[in-house]
Write a protein that binds this DNA or RNA. Structure first.
Lengths: 190, 190
DNA sequence: ACACATACGAAACAGGTCGTATCGTATCGT
DNA sequence: ACGATACGATACGACCTGTTTCGTATGTGT
């Protein structure tokens, strides 16, 4: 039995890092369609083999790039639902906030070959964190028991998504506060 | 001088219609990347020439498909801002409401070669209609003069976008009413 | 009737891309 | 030393984009 170590030459993790870095840069510059695996290999100075061994196809590579640039920290728990939702919104914004060129990267999440992996690895998790925030608020009596979790969360998430991916403009924290205040004061019901 | 008629054989408008129809169907089935101009030509029974004469590239073709399926009716003017915004939101939803397979078509709007044409031909126009609704509401005293037009409109538009393109679920009219009510009651300020 | 201008379908083309396969070589554990 | 795997290089088939060329069809102006 001896060891759990894998046999053979180990995968070069530093190479993995460089692949994701270069792919991210090229994705930001040229968009999903303009990104070619061959260019990534060229930029890194490796062969296509190294890339295809790690990711089954281009979509998986791009999904990995996006996930590597996203944070999935613990959901905030300040005791105040407005503060929690504000931090939740901030996290949304940070995860989507890319430099102007890289808006292409963000939009790549809608590619049919990219989205499913991102839903499983990211959106689902984010939703669960939001649900937690709201459930705690209900328990504290800050929100009515029949509040519509998803509508409330999707409104906040949608504002960021629309701004970043359509209009390419970030949102002032003050405006998040206004929208969250409105939604908490008159919450959508089931 | 005589006539304004164009010289030569006139463009076959029925063929144009069939091209957009077939392109829309294939786009819905296979997404943007899975759509090929050659397949469209094959489906229609025409040559690629006929397509490239109408649209300079694949992106323009897809943009034309999306615009052909979108309504840009007059902005509602009921005298009540809540009713106007609800109709505005309904229009958003109708414009994005595609059968499940066709969610691919919707997402194609984020393609770098498609988006610019759609911004000019659609989003900009929709925004102007929303601004009009809000300005009339301010004039009637239903909204404060320092309301933040874009944040209010983007919140409504974002909810639909997030739901349709990320979660693929339509929104009950009742929930639009709730969200709009909250936003009008405590509007985001400048 | 006839010339002209344009649209049409078919086909070939160059350039790029994806993803696979095949080399020989390098680097690990046993 | 040996087996197993990663690595770089290269070639490959299949497909796609967008251009061009050809002969043909269909309109207008004289």
């Amino acid at each position: 039995m001896a060891s759990d170590e894998k046999l053979g030459r180990p995968t070069d993790e530093d190479l993995t890092r460089r692949i994701l870095e270069a792919a991210g840069r090229l994705l930001g510059e040229n968009g999903y369609a303009g990104l070619s695996v061959e260019k990534v290999a060229k930029a890194v100075g490796c062969g296509k083999t190294a890339i295809y061994r790690r990711y089954p196809d281009k979509g998986a590579l791009v999904a990995a790039v996006l996930r590597s640039r996203v944070e999935l920290g613990a959901p905030p728990d300040t005791g105040d639902v407005r503060a929690d939702l504000l931090e939740h919104a901030r996290q949304n914004q940070r995860n989507q906030e890319l430099s102007p060129e890289r808006v292409h990267g963000m939009r790549a999440m809608f590619e049919p070959d990219v989205f499913p992996a991102l839903w499983e690895g990211f959106f689902k998790h984010r939703r669960e964190q939001g649900i937690e925030i709201i459930d705690r608020a209900i328990a504290r009596g800050e929100l009515p028991a029949d509040v519509h979790h998803d509508i409330l969360l999707d409104t906040i998430a949608g504002l960021t998504l629309y701004r970043q991916s359509v209009k390419r403009i970030s949102i002032d924290e003050r405006h998040y506060v206004d929208v969250i205040d409105a939604l908490v004061t008159r919450p959508p019901r089931r």
